[in-house]
Amino acid sequence: MGEGTGQAPATAHGPDAKAAPGPGRDAPFGPGRDARLSAAVERARHGDEGAFAEAYRLVHPGLLGYLRGIVGDDAEDVASDAWLEIARDLGRFRGDGAGFRGWTATIARHRALDHLRRVRARPRHTRFDQDLSELPAAGDAAGEALDALSTERALALIAGLPQDQAEAVLLRVVVGLDGPSAARVLGKRPGAVRSAAHRGLRRLAEQLKGRGR
């Protein structure tokens, strides 16, 4: 990417990084945004620094929310490391906007796990044993309940889930990945990730019901 690639990751500590998207309808994904992201990524791959900045703005809020669910207050530092790697390796990326979100989530997750190992915080291992097909739709009861919460409170609730459920919910609802993409990020089968997300959303719905939101 050249010298300009460091500019977008540096903003991980700026105003744009202060608020991750709400985990529901306002998250930065959908057909229109994915089309914009696809075009921006393609231009960025050929050295367009403005396009890289646009791709960063579209992807970073969800990525930061995902990292907050894994490493908490260290999310911005981990995100900065991830974006440096993304910028460095962008020329090798091949895919569309949805693929780019999955690719960046994979890089961010690796950096997060590296960070946890460095601080000797052992990540909880995932255990999946069900083979179902797809992640639950964002419009189910738990997803709608999460829409009604502030981002900070929603992420706090998600972070309190078991690790496998938290990551599945974050990838599905915050980052906006589909079942196969989330499974590739986690190195698991789509059905197993769907099961973890379903259990997590069901648990969140029960918590929200018990607290009266």
Score class of each variant (00 low, 15 high):
Ile107Pro: 03
Ala121Gln: 09
Arg118Cys: 03
Ala141Asn: 12
Ala141Ser: 12
Leu84Ser: 06
Ser133His: 07
Asp81Lys: 02
Ala138Tyr: 05
Arg101Val: 12
Ala121Asn: 06
Val119Gln: 12
Arg92Glu: 09
His125Gln: 11
Pro123Phe: 03
His110Gln: 09
Arg111Glu: 11
Pro136Phe: 00
Ala87Pro: 02
Asp81Trp: 04
Ser80Asn: 04
Ala108Glu: 12
Trp103Pro: 00
Arg124Ile: 07
Glu85Asn: 00
Arg94Gly: 10
Gly102Lys: 13
Asp114Ser: 08
Gly91Ser: 14
Glu85Ser: 00
Gly91Trp: 01
Arg117Ala: 07
Pro123Thr: 07
His110Lys: 11
Leu84Pro: 01
Phe128Gly: 08
Thr106Arg: 15
Arg111Pro: 09
Gly139Gln: 12
Thr104Cys: 14
Phe93Lys: 07
Arg127Ile: 06
Ala142Cys: 07
Asp81Ile: 00
Pro123Asp: 02
Ala98Ser: 15
Leu113Phe: 10
Gly143Asp: 02
Asp140Met: 02
Arg122Trp: 06
Gly102Ile: 13
Glu144Phe: 01
Gly95Asn: 15
Ala138Arg: 12
Thr104Asn: 12
Arg118Asp: 03
Gly143Ala: 06
Gly99Met: 14
Thr126Leu: 08
Leu135Pro: 00
Glu85Pro: 01
Ser133Tyr: 05
Val119Leu: 13
Glu85His: 00
His125Leu: 09
Leu90Ile: 06
Thr126Ile: 10
Ser80Tyr: 08
Asp131Ser: 10
Gly139Ser: 13
Arg101Leu: 14
Gly97Val: 14
Asp89Leu: 02
Leu116Val: 13
Gly102Arg: 15
Ser133Cys: 05
Gly139Ala: 11
Thr126Lys: 06
Thr104Pro: 08
Arg109Leu: 13
Thr106Glu: 13
Ser80Thr: 07
Gly99His: 15
Arg111Asp: 07
Ser133Val: 04
Leu132Phe: 01
Ala98Asp: 14
His110Asp: 09
Arg88Gly: 07
Glu144Gly: 03
Pro123Arg: 04
Asp96Thr: 15
Glu85Tyr: 00
Arg94Ser: 13
Gly91Ala: 15
Asp140Lys: 08
Asp131Cys: 06
Leu135Ser: 00
Thr106Ser: 13
Pro123Val: 06
Ala137Leu: 08
Pro136Ser: 08
Gly95Asp: 14
Gly97Lys: 15
Phe100Trp: 15
Arg117Pro: 02
Thr106Met: 13
Gln130Ile: 03
Gly91Arg: 14
Gly99Arg: 14
Gly99Pro: 08
Gly143Met: 11
Arg101Thr: 11
Arg124Gly: 07
Gly102Tyr: 04
Ala82Thr: 07
Trp103Ile: 00
Thr104Glu: 13
Asp81Ala: 03
Trp83Met: 01
Arg120Trp: 04
Arg111Trp: 05
Phe100Cys: 12
Ala121Glu: 08
Asp81Pro: 05
Thr106Trp: 01
Ala87Gln: 02
Arg109Lys: 13
Leu113Gly: 02
Ser133Ala: 09
His125Pro: 05
Asp114Pro: 04
Phe93Tyr: 13
Gly99Asp: 14
Arg109Cys: 08
His110Trp: 08
Arg88Ala: 06
Ala141Gly: 11
Leu135Met: 06
Ala138Ser: 04
